[in-house]
Design a protein around this nucleic acid. Structure first.
Lengths: 191, 191
DNA sequence: CTTTGTTGACCAAACGTTCAGTCAAAAAAT
DNA sequence: ATTTTTTGACTGAACGTTTGGTCAACAAAG
């Protein structure tokens, strides 16, 4: 019936979409959303400008998908079980994994931070980000509640802010930034 | 010799430049550098596009001046005397002033953060920012050295990261963000 | 008149987006 | 085997806008 099987076409499409996403992530993270043109992305992925519009309705939808799958990936890598309470050990492990992510997955971090900053992009995804991060936030709050601190929610907010701040400064300062030492201080003070 | 005294002209020029800076700051902070057009700025300031180029060589120079005078203003408002050692009291006061700045001067913060993020803009001012922040960083490091912690420099970096992270999250979350409570935790843990 | 602030029409370049048309590959027909 | 037909991924020229930046001309004021 058809010249190629649907599975073959699907495979080709997934490959191309992935290739476009890889290029777009790299460029958005290192040049910024507005500063990256659709042509830049297509060139980097080795395809024509038109093909990008076969796979994504527009530039906005592309960045939206990038951010959401990015955060989901990071949350997945963090490998936390939100259904049960955090222990000292799992909490420490979570912090350590997060610091590894900052170093190893810095492009995702750059994109995520630039989203928090650039209001044009924020509008597109703020609700989704909030929903994805909610369980994480709840778990951390629960941990501090258990610990009996005065203001568990503020602690959770603060920890999130620290991750954001360390990430942004690491991006800015580069390899010389003392990630290890800072991680140790945080574990000492906040576990 | 001149139809108006040089002082009069200078006053007019300073007024216009200031007006353009106010508009540019507002728009850069809330729309982003790339997303804000020169026309946007001129309209907001109530002047023509051409006049902007009478006062600033180009868009880059405008944002550069904004960022540098902005950080200098914040550092000035922080009112720290770097020539002498920080005490528990002055250190606490510094943290409190910084938190006030986050709330009261959020446009400067947004711009500063977006600079750290957007590589196009970063290149323009990274050296200057580094130089302006250096004394602050040294003083904080000295404080922790005096305190006898294991890694004073890492503490200074961490405190800087916390300011950045709290600032960015406050911008993102808005008025509901528990700035006060977080400030108290920081003072409790880091003074 | 001279000087200086100010304007807005103007420009080339770059932008996101569209779409008529091309092409290799596979199925169907011969 | 060979030819024909059908498919959908893929291209790139073209479109309408918008951009950062220029400049000749004008306004205002001594």
């Amino acid at each position: 019936m058809s010249p190629k099987s649907e599975e073959q076409f699907e495979a080709i499409r997934q490959e191309r979409k992935e290739s476009l996403k890889v290029s777009a992530l790299k460029l958005f993270a290192n040049k910024g959303f507005k500063a990256t043109s659709v042509m830049d992305i297509a060139k980097d992925a080795g395809v024509s400008k038109g093909l990008l519009y076969n796979y994504y309705a527009n530039k906005d939808e592309l960045v939206k998908e990038l951010i959401i799958t990015g955060i989901e990936k990071i949350m997945g890598d963090m490998n936390m079980d939100f259904s049960q309470k955090l222990t000292k050990e799992s909490f420490t492990r979570m912090i350590e994994i997060n610091f590894n992510l900052i170093r190893e997955n810095s492009d995702y971090w750059k994109l995520y931070i630039s989203v928090l900053t650039q209001p044009t992009v924020t509008k597109l995804v703020s609700q989704e980000i909030f929903e994805i991060l909610a369980p994480f936030f709840m778990a951390v709050t629960g941990y501090y509640q258990e610990k009996g601190v005065k203001n568990p929610m503020a602690y959770a907010y603060l920890l999130g802010a620290i991750f954001d701040g360390v990430g942004i400064d690491y991006i800015f300062a580069g390899e010389q930034y003392p990630l290890q030492e800072i991680k140790n201080i945080i574990i000492e003070k906040f576990v």
